[in-house]
Design a protein around this nucleic acid. Sequence first.
DNA 1: GGGGGCTATGGGGGG
DNA 2: CATAGCCCCC
Length: 754
Amino acid sequence: MQEVSHSYLEELNDTQRKAVTTLDGPVMVIAGPGSGKTRVLTFRIAHIMNSGVAPWQILALTFTNKAAKEMKERIERLVGSGANKIWAGTFHSLFARILRVEAHRIGYPNDFTIYDTDDTKSLIKEIIKGMGLDTKAYNPNAVKSRISSAKSNLITPKAYEANADLMNYDRMNRRPKIFQIYDKYVKKCLRAGAMDFDDLLLQMFKLLYQNPDDIKSKYQSQFQYILVDEFQDTNFLQYEIMKQLVKYDGSKENICIVGDDAQSIYSFRGATIENILQFEADFMNVQTFKLEQNYRSTHHIVEAANGIIGYNKRQIEKKIWTDYIGENKIKVIKALTDSEEGKRVADLIIEQKNRFSLENKEIAILYRTNAQSRVFEEHLRRQNIQYRIYGGLSFYQRKEIKDLIAYLRLTVNPKDDEALKRIVNYPRRGIGKTTIEKLVQFADDNEVSMWQGIPNIELSKRAQNLLAGFAGMIASFRKKNQGGINAYDMALFIARKSGILELLKSDNSIEGLNRVENLNALLDGIKEFVEDDELGDGENPLEKSLSVYLQNIALITDMDEDKGNTDVVTLMSVHAAKGLEYKSVFVVGMEENLFPSFMALSTPNQIDEERRLFYVAITRAKDLLTVTYANSRYHFGQMRFNDPSRFIEELPPENVDSIIPIKAKPEFGEPRVLGGIKPRLKQRNVLPKIDVSGFVVAAPNEIKEGMKVLHMKFGEGKVVSIDERQVASIHFTQLVENAEKRIMLQYAKLQILE
DNA sequence: GGGGGCTATGGGGGG
DNA sequence: CATAGCCCCC
């Protein structure tokens, strides 16, 4: 037996050490900002490994993949080797990895597509339009967030319809049919073999809960130790998954959660502080440790943070303190315009760099909304200060990148309707809007993906040939892809054969050249992925297929990318700054309607969350904190006037320099009031209510011309004709428009009436 | 079916 | 300001 060194324990204070060495049973660590939380987590994992536990038996759920990567590197240095085999990453990426192996057990292909926000939105929009509803009343964003929140709370479409609170809420907001959209959305995703971000959690839960082939015990016994970072930002569903993994007969319940209720800033995506309270109720004998000493910031910053958070009721009792007495108070700067704000921040950065010999990378500008980055960019560039913006439009969201990726997605999973719609006519091959609409309708009627509809839909000869040509190309890509080709060779082949590369190269404008460059950068990235010789769990090189590549990039964010050692000022949203620290921090745009956001003004709970967000913002600073606001700023091309943020007044005066407590009155430019909702409904099919109990599905070959049949969705109809591809034309008596539908017998659920 | 120009309209944070 | 969606023309 090798001698194990525990010398790292000497680097910890008493509470930290207890949090690291208490390995058995449920542990809760409440960790104030700058209290050495990351250190505790890494040391704890190292300690678990030193106690003889294999790295792959440890599940560490972090907030970003970058945090997981850094943690693994630090653990590697502490314990020698093996740290790369720890299951560390975000909920989404780790569950995607598991589902890639297990999805077939719950009705999904293992090669499932991950739908991003744009895919989700466009699908929801398609459904709304398909139902003849108005996209103004049924704002796709609003609908998406209702669906997302339903999924995060384990509410199925059926349960949604049966839930009086949800239905009343939707009725009050004039969106009574959200439950139907939700239902269609779920079905369409399944047909497309696609999971959205919420599904990565929801399907993981289903896998464990439904427990096909006793799969649950496999993961329960694998993950002997579970750690969850930023627990305050997990939602109900994430917590339920954790419980599936940890709570069972004979479990040692070795789970450690680390969080800070004061830094809970993600309730908009379903995170709930209740989880912290619930944890103590769900687990017996939870051992709680509170890390209250702040090692990061000056007393001015810590006291200001305490002062701010004191305005919030209801929090876990704790007192964050520091023995770091700083010289510089918090600076509050008022600017007349947003542009002046940008200039003053840039000037002050120059001044601070000289006076305190700061490097660019020790400085960050934090804002409430990504749209605010522009003025700072402008002025930093003017002053020749290197910077980097995180968040906003990422590389993978550029059009030319998404186009090629859509081809790759379709090659891996041809049922991916969103990918198909995107590129079926790009580059142009004469397949127009009408054809695509018909294909969408046909696929919907037959409850299949568009890809499955292509060989069976009846269109003009021309349209049919064009579609067949496209399908043939994709089929040839698929055939090539199944021959064990790596992702790079495949992607290059597709970029050439699809005509994308050629099309982009024919554009000699600056933007065109840029696009070619971006596409090449994407191909380089794929090459890098292929050549990376990182080892997987079983010491085998990780698989380099297109499918694995797509899974990797679907969950990548700006934050995960290496900044390298470049010396740049960081610009990012406050949300993105969670967990980070800088010597000098500028929190900008501190105005009513912006921070706190106008969306939050009417709800006390949301104001509290904005306040926690401000708390997170200021506690990123180690030495210097500057808070700025502007009397006027451009927003959507309009000049707007805002009062200074209430949070500025909440800063304790003794920790602040040069505060100017003037409440500017708006002179003109009152906020534009959005108009009322004007529903504009066309006469549409109202689908008949069909009693599905006692429904007898007929075999495809039993259906004959002239028969009267019952369809699950469209009700009674008469079979007009059946063609050689087994597509039947059926006239449905209860439909108002497009009563004659073409239905694929292979998939149709029809009952013979007479 | 495709392209170009014009208008109306969003309104946050992110995996 | 940015862009989706519409209208009109080829």
